[in-house]
Design a protein around this nucleic acid. Structure first.
Lengths: 334, 334
DNA sequence: CTGAAAGCGCTTACAG
DNA sequence: CTGAAAGCGCTTACAG
């Protein structure tokens, strides 16, 4: 596009290209006078560096990829916004890649997205089992979001889902509920299994029975899955008096099904979600949910990935636990 | 990263680099035998082209930017997903840039996002007035989403907001409502003004009075703005019996405020939105709204922008009108 | 502190 | 149909 090159700036400022490059890259040992001359020339010519040339030479693009199942899903949209913001602060651009949960797309990510102009990858898998995740030796730095891979070789940043699910279930128990359903046990990449673990743990701790009829698959984690799950639960001989949905979309779908059935929330059935997306906060009734600190997550994930890219990260793989709170709202306390 | 270069492939296949390049770029006049040899070498070495080098040489990156106010807002998240998908089909990668409605960020976009590795820009402004939008002569191709700029020099793809707002308001009139409020008249980049135009037009056509007290600013277009607007409307000496909100988030906020006030929808107040985001479809009551065809929008926007980049677009600036439907749901018909 | 030159990995005229 | 070579615009040893 613009024809201005580094050498044009150098000519105009009366210095060598090396000097201009030094100024642009903020290297030391430039006299203020030289710097001023160069900066004036840059301004006059409206020069901007050619990113392709720089990447080619340096072997770094200052781009990272964020691979998520779908950006239109509110949790991932909010996550993407947080990560983009955190990266921008560090001069890094985020490329968002939608895998749509397709195994081939997820494998492409695990293979380092070869040919893509990126220095590293933040990946939220949904199809690939955590145990299947390994990094190629010649691959780009990879950081995983979501459920943990015990003993894996990849950095992780995630909420402690077992503990959070225990807390969510326990909240329902503390309200005196005894038939507590779980929706989303079939969730991908280990999510369903891990959250069910916390759910069952809370039931056991309270001396409540575990009833497989109350554990619903809910694969897909969308509103329609939550609504369908709730309809199934209401059709049971003895329906639940509370539901822990493994994400907020499932919970919002469940609330819709409860409204359709003419039941009151939390009077007849209390509902808890997971994620704290904005929809849930404004919904009527507002949704009790697990609220992870997305800004914390984004900051740590970007920082750690950039450390890996720079080769300055710790020698061992890291497993960071995202702070969260249980937000108690109308769907459990009226 | 990977050390394999074009010349390595050429050496392995026993041909020149030119031939390998020809195979990769699908140029004609390659014998099937040569092609097979080259493809075998590529597969054996796991070769992938270096994108920086290619961009530097060709002066094209096959990246386009999508500049939107915020990707966590459901409408923009859904728009971003649709545009990413449409671009991917054509081998183009979309870079999402969040302006957060900041004037400086929007100006940066209008200046062609200099220094960014992109061939063109799809831009949804929110702060910059449509009349202020012009393109630099040396700038990259730019395509605008949102309200029209009459007589401007930039391609546009947008819903006919006047007509759509007329339809939405008319739907409320046809239900016998007579005090119809409008929320969002202060919306950025002309949106509020244009939608109010359609709203007023419908009132006039029906012989209903225009009451400025029923036109609420609603700037921000988020749920909280809709809730605040609704509370203001309910505090009027004679509150409205219907509300046309200029986007779905405003409408969802209004529904929340109506629920808090113990009013029934649509019994006491009917509500219409604009955008057809997924939240509205599952909300209880589900939201009557204007539903633009986002896949149509994404396809046309990407195609037209790529034509501009290639220099094959029509000589005149284009103004494409996105098909839409009025989705009638519970918030107006119970 | 600065200059001249090589080279990152491609694509593309230019010859053959 | 293929080969040898130039050049896209940077950064970075290497000299001075």
């Amino acid at each position: 596009m613009v024809a201005t090159r580094l050498s044009d700036v150098a000519a105009r400022a009366g210095v060598s290209v090396k000097t201009v490059s030094n100024v642009i890259n903020d290297y030391p040992h430039i006299t203020p006078a030289t710097r001023a001359k160069v900066e004036a020339a840059i301004a006059e010519l409206g020069y901007t560096p050619n990113v392709s040339a720089r990447s080619l030479r340096k072997g770094r693009s200052d781009f990272i990829a964020l691979a998520i199942p779908e950006m239109a899903s509110p949790y991932f949209a909010e996550l993407g916004a947080a990560i983009s913001r955190a990266a921008k602060k560090r001069g890094i651009t985020v490329l968002i890649d939608q895998t749509e949960g397709e195994p081939a797309a997820e494998q492409f990510v695990l293979d380092g997205m070869r040919g893509q102009l990126i220095d590293g990858i933040i990946f939220s898998p949904i199809t690939t089992a955590p145990t299947k995740i390994t990094v190629a030796d010649d691959g780009k730095p990879l950081l995983l979001l979501g459920e943990r891979q015990p003993g894996g070789a990849v950095d992780h940043v995630a909420v402690d889902s077992v503990q959070a699910s225990f807390d969510a279930t326990n909240h329902l128990i503390s309200l005196g509920r005894t038939r507590i359903a779980a929706v989303g046990v079939g969730g991908g990449a280990g999510t369903g299994a891990v959250r069910r673990k916390g759910y069952r743990k809370a039931l056991k701790a309270a001396g409540l029975p575990i009833d497989p009829a109350l554990e619903i698959d809910g694969t897909g984690y969308h509103r329609e899955d939550g609504a369908a799950a709730m309809r199934d639960l209401l059709a049971l001989p003895s329906p639940p008096d509370a539901v822990f949905c493994f994400n907020d979309l499932l919970a919002l779908g469940a609330l819709r099904a409860l409204a359709d059935a003419g039941l009151s929330v939390p009077g007849d059935v209390a509902v808890v979600g997971f994620d704290d997306i904005e929809d849930g906060r404004y919904h009527s009734p507002s949704l009790t949910t697990i609220s992870p600190d997305l800004d914390w997550l984004a900051d740590k994930a970007v920082t750690l990935l950039l450390d890996r890219i720079a080769g300055t990260g710790p020698p061992e793989r890291l497993d960071l636990s995202v702070p969260y709170t249980l937000q108690i709202r109308e769907s459990t306390t009226g």
